[in-house]
Design a binder for these strands. Structure first.
Lengths: 339, 339
DNA sequence: AATCTGAACGCAAACGCTTGCGCAACAGGA
DNA sequence: TCCTGTTGCGCAAGCGTTTGCGTTCAGATT
């Protein structure tokens, strides 16, 4: 049926071992013979069976990538860039989309990934048990989302500093009542919301502004959540004159809520986001940009390097640069009375 | 090291064959014995090696998904929903991201997917050679993007009808100069741009409007392309009073261009898109919605069904419903003079 | 009591590759 | 001429499953 290694061995008049060595560039084959074998393989359209070779060698040439939700821009973008690095290096990518709790549980109990991958890139924050399960695989581990765990190499950004620059911008414009749309209800082990919140609090403290718990609303890191959160903030007796959304998606939800309330941005309310979503430029959202694709690339490269020289533990964490991006959703506070 | 089937066999005092049968629910094992084996396997934390089992059985329990660009909303969403179906059915997903021409060529010449998957879902339009290469794999094939090829089962939408409803809406509002932002330069084998264009032309003809080639601009199905295209249209001596963008992403680019030109939407120019991107609601874009996630699910299910009953060729094509969504970017034409 | 019938399980041969080791053949040095 | 390396290749033993077939044995059938 399909052509196997012995077929090309027979076609060349050598043994299967030699074919194997020749095709993988292993020493012990004369250049002339190698050329003949390569030619024969090409002609027959031979490709080694991955199952067989990984059974025999233990190497799978496959990387597992686990993500909470492929459809979201951030994860899709990281996955996209990481996959390119992997496939360029000859690795395949096994994707696990663990959005629902059931899928997640199924994955971590059955660990279908076991013996199937040489390394894993996790774009979701494993809790302690899950992290242990991943470590039990005995392969290099990496992540691009806040919340380092022992055994993982992590590439990320300065969330706190980023939040600071966003909020400082609002303060500099003259805002005093600054709301925040956060992700308080996010999984505990995800440190990003905490770090960004800390940046927010830092700047307020620095500016001598008393933080008001009522000005923090939970947006769950989604567009709809952001819309709900903004709506809550607007219902306050003294609504904020500016809000810092911990993600651009929530910021967009906020913009939508503001439009619904017939409030102008930035004249009535300023909004600043975080991430620099691909569509943020389209809506003119002021935000702090993080190099999402670059993070995926970096993490992938770290994993590959780790695989090549499995000398020791995980490489040290990498922090990628961020950049404040001024667009059109921020301005000095409205000086008249609100609404 | 890691536990193998013989370990659980010894632990239970039976042969490996029995363990294999027991764990996979094959007949020939008493219920009592099966229970003992399952318990032992659970305790030892045993999972069958995929490489070994697929080498022995020929089944890989893996589906290949090839996509042009995971980061784009449409593909990410389809992938997301399809993956859920596959993994729920016990299949893993092997992802191939073929954005760049090099990656694409590498994939189709080396066919790393060969012998690794039981079926493939293609979200990119293969040209004739590529389609042949995929067919040579001898596994079920499916696609969710226009441009059916023999041997593929396809799930899609009525692109032409969708475009018609969008453009008819503009006509009904009273527009006569209706521009279109298309994807003329897209790969030849992708029929979507053609079908959507045909819908546009149909309605114009129906309304007795002479189509003006100058009103068609290429947006390449990207945000930036849409912005460029809209800019071109605005530079016309007689710019359109409304534009139909063949995708929401291009529509958003158009909105951006309009904002840059200080034109109001919909007062000065109406815009209607196609797809119902997740952020279209945020920007209030009038569009025609297609069930993207549902298409991924459907395609995945078709593949699984095909795998279960490999009686014949591909199942018949499935057409999913579309729906016109009226939002805030369309209105009757400005009656005064433009600008 | 002899025979037959399933059910439950073990044997052993694949599956298609990788790899340590062995063995010619040949080259160069003494 | 003999010895010591090298080079180039084949042998065969795995890798961890699956599966066709054979065996055993308890119970049913004559």
């Amino acid at each position: 049926m399909t052509v196997s290694i012995t077929d090309v061995a027979e076609a060349t008049g050598v043994s299967a071992s030699t074919v194997s060595r020749a095709l993988r560039g292993r020493p012990g084959v004369s250049e002339e013979m190698r050329a003949r074998i390569v030619a024969a393989a090409a002609e027959l359209g031979y490709t080694a069976s991955r199952s067989a070779s990984s059974l025999a060698s233990g190497r799978t040439y496959t990387i597992g990538v686990v993500v909470p939700y492929v459809g979201r821009w951030f994860f899709g973008t990281v996955l996209d860039s990481a996959e390119k690095v992997f496939s360029a290096a000859g690795y395949d990518v096994l994707l696990y989309n663990l959005g629902s709790p059931e899928a997640r549980k199924r994955f971590f109990t059955k660990l279908p990934i076991r013996k199937r991958v040489d390394a894993v890139l996790s774009l979701l924050i494993p809790d302690l048990e899950e992290a242990a399960a991943l470590r039990s695989l005995g392969v290099p581990l990496a992540t691009t989302v806040g919340g380092a765990r022992p055994g993982f190499t992590v590439v990320g950004i300065d969330d706190r500093g980023g939040a600071e620059s966003a909020v400082r911008h609002l303060v500099n414009l003259g805002h005093r009542r600054i709301g925040m749309i956060s992700g308080a209800s996010e999984p505990l082990h995800w440190t990003t919301p905490l770090d960004r919140r800390q940046g927010y609090l830092d700047v307020l403290a620095d500016a001598g502004i008393e933080p008001d718990p009522a000005l923090e609303a939970d947006g769950g890191y989604t567009v709809e959540g952001g819309e709900r959160a903004m709506t809550e903030l607007l219902a306050l007796r003294h609504p904020p004159t500016a809000v810092f959304a911990q993600s651009d998606e929530m910021a967009m939800g906020a913009l939508r809520a503001l439009r619904r309330h017939r409030l102008r941005v930035p004249e009535d309310v300023s909004v600043v986001g975080f991430d620099d979503h691909e569509l943020s430029e389209v809506v003119g959202l002021t935000t702090v940009a993080q190099p999402v694709a670059a993070q995926g690339r970096e993490a992938a490269q770290l994993l590959l390097a780790w695989l090549d020289g499995p000398d020791a533990g995980p490489p040290p964490p990498v922090e990628m640069p961020i950049r404040f991006v001024l667009r059109e959703t921020t301005a000095p506070p409205h000086t008249g009375r609100q609404r």
